[in-house]
Simulated assay, not measured.
Amino acid sequence: MRFVSLPASHSFSHISLSRYIRTMAQSHGNNTGKKLIRIDVSSDSVCPWCLVGKKNLDKAMDSSKEKFNFEVRWHPFFLNPSAPKEGVHKREYFQQKFGSRSEQIFARMTEVFRGLGLEYDTSGLTGNTLDSHRLITFAGHQGFDKQNALVEELFLGYFTQGKYIGDREFLVGAAGKAGVEGAAEFLENPNNGVEEVNEELDKYSAHITGVPYYVINGKLKLSGGQPPELFLRAFESAADVF
């Protein structure tokens, strides 16, 4: 989908965000001469197109890192808020949800993932993603680089290794690989982070119906697993916000 300017109602209920972007841009500009591109991503941990979009976004950022500094923040979205915490088999769930189309969907995602050098794994369980969102939000307080690394580990584990997104051991292991400290203790209390996840949902995801969804410098919005070229065009356009 093409990117478009946000409507006036969105630009800027975020006055503080605007000030923050300008302040950070000046800071980065003084040090590196690069402009800051801030990317807010609404995503669910069991959305395959969110992994596709992340990989393409990473490519776009890597190819333009000499020109821009980037700050990526991940925000929660629930494709199925009522998904069971105990989990159900992926294939069984998708067959119930999509019927005869499920095998076509699996075949399509297998093709797309292979284009990224990944193998799409349909084994294992799927289910409620609240704990993953609690952990992602928690990681953001330790740095957005760590948060981004955690999202990567969760995606790869769930989509390519058959890991269950609700498994505490998997979540803690992914946090360790991403350098996030205190994950086990944080997740032990099921109430930790829930209020913040709900606040993030209201602020970033209440107006959308699907993911991945990106807001770039509070100005441009994109949805879907876009190719790197479209992200590059969006960076150039969004840089004019300063």
Score class of each variant (00 low, 15 high):
Leu187Asp: 06
Leu201Ser: 08
Gly173Tyr: 02
Asp40Glu: 11
Leu116Trp: 02
Tyr164Ile: 12
Gly179Pro: 03
Glu92Thr: 15
Ala175Trp: 03
Lys203Trp: 14
Ser63Pro: 07
Phe3Glu: 06
Ile165Ala: 06
Pro227His: 10
Thr129Gln: 03
Glu66Asn: 13
Arg233Cys: 08
Ala8Thr: 09
Asp202Met: 12
Leu36Asp: 03
Pro227Arg: 15
Ala183Asp: 00
Pro76Ala: 01
Ser223Val: 14
Val46Asp: 07
Val241Tyr: 02
Ser45Phe: 00
Thr137Cys: 02
Ser64Lys: 11
Leu154Cys: 10
Gly140Pro: 02
Glu236Ser: 05
Pro84Met: 00
Tyr158Gly: 11
Phe98Gln: 05
Leu130Ile: 03
Asp44Thr: 09
Asn191Ile: 07
Phe231Leu: 01
Glu92Trp: 14
Thr32Ser: 10
Ile15Gln: 12
Ile216Val: 15
Glu200Gly: 04
Thr209Lys: 13
Thr23Arg: 08
Lys34Phe: 01
Phe113Ala: 10
Ala139Ser: 01
Leu150Tyr: 02
Ser223His: 11
Tyr158Phe: 14
Leu57Phe: 01
Lys221Arg: 14
Asp131Met: 06
Lys97His: 10
Thr32Leu: 04
His89Asp: 15
Lys97Ser: 14
Arg2Pro: 08
Lys85Leu: 09
Arg168Cys: 09
Asn217Phe: 03
Asp58His: 00
Val46Gly: 04
Val194Ile: 13
His14Asn: 15
Thr110Ile: 07
Gly157Phe: 00
Gly182Glu: 04
Gly173Pro: 08
His10Ser: 13
Arg108Glu: 09
Pro212Asn: 10
Ser64Val: 07
Gly124Asp: 05
Arg114Tyr: 06
Arg134Lys: 05
Glu195Gly: 13
Leu156Cys: 12
